[in-house]
Lab assay of single mutants.
Amino acid sequence: MSIQHFRVALIPFFAAFCLPVFAHPETLVKVKDAEDQLGARVGYIELDLNSGKILESFRPEERFPMMSTFKVLLCGAVLSRVDAGQEQLGRRIHYSQNDLVKYSPVTEKHLTDGMTVRELCSAAITMSDNTAANLLLTTIGGPKELTAFLHNMGDHVTRLDRWEPELNEAIPNDERDTTMPAAMATTLRKLLTGELLTLASRQQLIDWMEADKVAGPLLRSALPAGWFIADKSGASERGSRGIIAALGPDGKPSRIVVIYTTGSQATMDERNRQIAEIGASLIKHW
């Protein structure tokens, strides 16, 4: 058993032996400061991975655009179909130039040979490839079927209504393609630790998130040596930015963190910096 498999397999085991986890309101002070700095709403939640207890939250039940963070949920739905014998990670999917949409750094290189379902999930999560996400959405029946999958998990909040890139429109008060921090954190925890997916599929999902290559300026920039993080970021119109993550010290995840912001006029660099500073406060007061 690899170190990674050891880590995921023991998450339920550690729940019975973990020390009490204490919240630190200092992080919420930073979240509120980020709102002031960005001139935008910020949603935040910090969840204990083992118990599911909410440690801190700010606007946990307000809607925010999901942006590309939905791609983790999408690959969770794909893995659920794999577990049920309805899909194979090794199945190759062929597509054409007409299928390519904006920001497809991986799929645009494989027009001649296509990509496997496994490769598409990797591209969608680690590189946020939009065509990969659309191709995967097609395999499960489209955005409405992803919403149905989430409903069956008990998440009646999170919804996907459109495809890439239209889902990134982020119109104020538009509930399409949105979630709430509390709903996203709970759903992510179920995917990573619950019985919905097999152990192998849970491991695969967290491996893809751990290999994320496009979230460096966010929480990863504040991470001390030896800490673990598996994450997925997102960005969209109207100053929207977000990240969902499982992270913790000693090389294993122990908390879920979800951060969303929307409605800012700030630059992408400034949005990144504010999220990184929230992460730094979280780690300092861990």
Rank of each mutant, 00 (worst) to 15 (best):
S57K: 11
E108G: 13
V214Q: 08
I244C: 05
A280S: 11
T147A: 03
L196Q: 15
E210G: 06
P12S: 14
V82Q: 04
L49R: 01
T267R: 09
D161N: 03
R189G: 07
M268C: 06
P25R: 07
V82I: 11
G216L: 05
P60H: 13
L10V: 13
L10N: 05
S281F: 07
K30N: 06
P65V: 04
S221K: 13
L79F: 01
G85K: 15
L223F: 13
T198N: 13
D231C: 03
W163K: 07
M66T: 03
D212K: 02
Q203A: 11
L282A: 05
T193L: 12
V42A: 05
N152T: 13
L188G: 01
L73Q: 02
H110D: 02
N173G: 15
G226P: 02
V42L: 08
T178S: 11
A34T: 06
D231I: 03
V117C: 02
V8C: 15
E237A: 14
D83I: 01
R238H: 14
A133G: 09
G52L: 02
L223N: 01
D161S: 05
P143T: 04
S57N: 06
K232E: 11
Q97R: 15
P224Y: 01
H285L: 04
G242H: 01
L219E: 01
S221I: 08
K144S: 15
M115I: 06
R7D: 09
E175K: 09
V82N: 04
M1T: 03
L218S: 03
P12I: 14
L218K: 01
F228S: 03
N168L: 04
T107G: 02
N50S: 15
W163Q: 07
T131S: 10
D250L: 08
A200E: 15
L89S: 04
R271S: 10
E87S: 03
T186A: 14
P165T: 10
Q4P: 08
I275T: 01
F22L: 15
F6L: 14
P224N: 01
A230C: 08
I171L: 15
R81N: 08
E61K: 12
L10I: 15
E56R: 05
W286M: 02
E145Y: 08
P65C: 03
H94R: 12
S80M: 11
L89P: 06
I278T: 00
N98I: 14
G242D: 00
G43E: 00
K284Q: 14
P25T: 08
L160C: 13
V72C: 04
E61N: 15
D177Q: 01
L137A: 02
R162Q: 08
P172T: 10
Q88C: 13
L188M: 09
E87C: 04
Q203R: 14
Y103L: 05
M184I: 10
L188V: 09
V42M: 10
Y260I: 05
P224V: 01
G39D: 11
E210S: 10
G239M: 03
I244S: 00
A200D: 14
K144N: 13
D48N: 04
S221A: 13
R176T: 06
V72A: 06
P181T: 02
I283Y: 10
L146V: 07
E166G: 10
I54R: 07
M184R: 00
D212A: 02
P172Q: 10
W163T: 07
R7S: 12
A16H: 11
L137C: 03
G154V: 02
Q86E: 13
S122C: 12
T187A: 05
N98H: 13
R238V: 11
D83N: 02
S281P: 01
L197V: 03
G239T: 07
V8D: 12
L192S: 02
G279S: 07
R189L: 10
K53A: 15
S236G: 15
A133L: 00
S264N: 11
I93A: 01
N272S: 05
T179R: 00
T147S: 08
R202Q: 11
N272T: 06
R81Y: 06
R41V: 06
S240L: 03
I243T: 01
S264M: 06
L219C: 01
M67I: 03
T158I: 01
L38Y: 06
A9K: 12
M127A: 08
R189H: 13
R159A: 03
E145D: 10
G39V: 08
W286V: 00
M180T: 15
L55Q: 04
R41A: 08
S201I: 06
G52R: 02
A246E: 02
L197H: 02
R81C: 04
P172G: 12
L167M: 12
R238D: 13
D174L: 03
P65T: 04
Y260F: 11
I283F: 12
R255A: 01
